[in-house]
Amino acid sequence: MAKKTYDLLFKLLLIGDSGVGKTSILFRFSDDAFTSTFISTIGIDFKIKTVELRGKKIKLQIWDTAGQERFHTITTSYYRGAMGIMLVYDVTDERSFENIVKWLRNIDEHANEDVEKMILGNKCDIDGKRAVNKDRGEAIAREYGVPFLETSAKANTNIDKAFNDLATAILDKYAGKEPGDAPDRVMVDPRRGDTSRRSCC
């Protein structure tokens, strides 16, 4: 059967230190009651998700580093073909935040230069143990010109928005760049990020 069931295909990567919750961003319900012991033993390689943006059906193929980051073996082959990268740190882990700059350099060295990036401060549902304030996340995102969101995979805060925003940024780039439209989405606007619509963080 050769019928085409989608318009566009975007390859996305999740990057960041071990333990920042990349896997739970990819599989956000994995803490729930239903867990398959067999599947969690062998682990997940990648997942395909379908989103609809501006009337286009887009397939997202999302890859997790699967622990490669521990051995600093994330190189060109992992980045090959990537159109979008989620850079994830843990708001309760200072070091994972400091390493975001290191990951940005790694991306510069190995990934396609026009890859779309987004910084995510994950685990923002954990109030008591926060080590990195939201404004520090916003500041670094502004400095590097990368959009920023605080997320909670556990509370399902901003996860869908993160993937939609990143996919939209890629779509804008490939859709002929409507003037005056894309910059609004690509640049960080802290005022907009602070709206109380989803005020978990």
């Binding site: 069931t5 599947i39 997940i44 997942k47 998700k49 379908t50 397939k59």
Partner: peptide, 14 residues
Amino acid sequence: SDMFHFENVGFSHT
């Protein structure tokens, strides 16, 4: 026939 014909699906490691 094609993995991209799925709406939403996960693939395990081999």
